[in-house]
Design a protein around this nucleic acid. Structure first.
Lengths: 134, 134
DNA sequence: GTCATATATGAATTACTATTCACGTATTGA
DNA sequence: TCAATACGTGAATAGTAATTCATATATGAC
């Protein structure tokens, strides 16, 4: 398991922890250099994961049209208000959505321009594929 | 539970199944009209979910630099080859990645330009936030 | 053919996550 | 103050999903 094969070439790289069975040293070095920092990567994954759920994606799609209160949002996407509220909490925590209270209603809106951009860009491309292979 | 409040105004809409407690009828109608079709929405969510996992995100980031064999990929992102192989299967199934065998090695590469675009766009924006509030 | 390497895969375990249900809080109006 | 409405939230359940371990397959060296 602690077999030193090409680790001599990698010895100079302090950040290359896993020297196990590397075939192309330069490719590995380049890949590791291109990996985003921990926090950045985690943030990226969180945003993508937030968009990676149908319910949340519907919420985003709905809010891309109008700001909406929770009960209308729930009706729009055919989901319980409780489930919507739970998801809104997550989206709020990520800064993707913001809520504004007006009397008894709380109006939610997208709070992040680049999420809209990501969404419409993805929609564009997936739209192509769906149209093509339908 | 079967309270008819504004359902008279909604009666004409065959696609509005959930007529439960709707406050803003027009907003709900617009939101529902903007919701992508089932397959499209599922496809969108799948792609986003694929990018929503740190391990897969690292794979994408690495492959955005070079095509790589599995063991180098595993070394690059400090994950077991088995785990990488499992994830590659999913990415392959989604058409995000393609593999090319050369002898004993299988070189993987990104197979979807728009995933690269999504990734770099998100990286761009998350990079901003990380730089700002560091 | 045998052996070693590189990758794939199945099963099991573990962890996470989305929804539901029940209840709590906040605001409005009588 | 009391009732009703809109939303938030904690606990529990159920479904999913990521990793590990063991093993299978495939290619090349000998």
């Amino acid at each position: 398991m602690a077999r030193p094969r090409k680790s001599d070439q990698l010895a100079a790289m302090a950040d290359l922890v896993c020297d196990d069975r590397v075939v192309h040293v330069d490719a590995v070095r380049a890949a590791r250099a291109a990996l985003p920092e921990g926090r950045t990567l985690a943030g990226l994954a969180e945003v993508f994961a937030a968009l990676g759920d149908p319910t949340r994606l519907k919420i985003i799609a709905a809010l891309a049209q109008n700001e909406m209160c929770v009960c209308d949002l729930a009706a729009s996407i055919a989901t319980s208000e409780s489930a919507v509220s739970h998801q809104l909490r997550g989206l709020r925590a990520l800064g993707l959505v913001r809520g504004r209270r007006e009397g008894r209603l709380v109006y939610y809106a997208l709070d992040d321009a680049h999420v809209t951009a990501l969404y419409s860009q993805a929609l564009d491309h997936v739209g192509h594929r769906t149209t093509e292979d339908a």
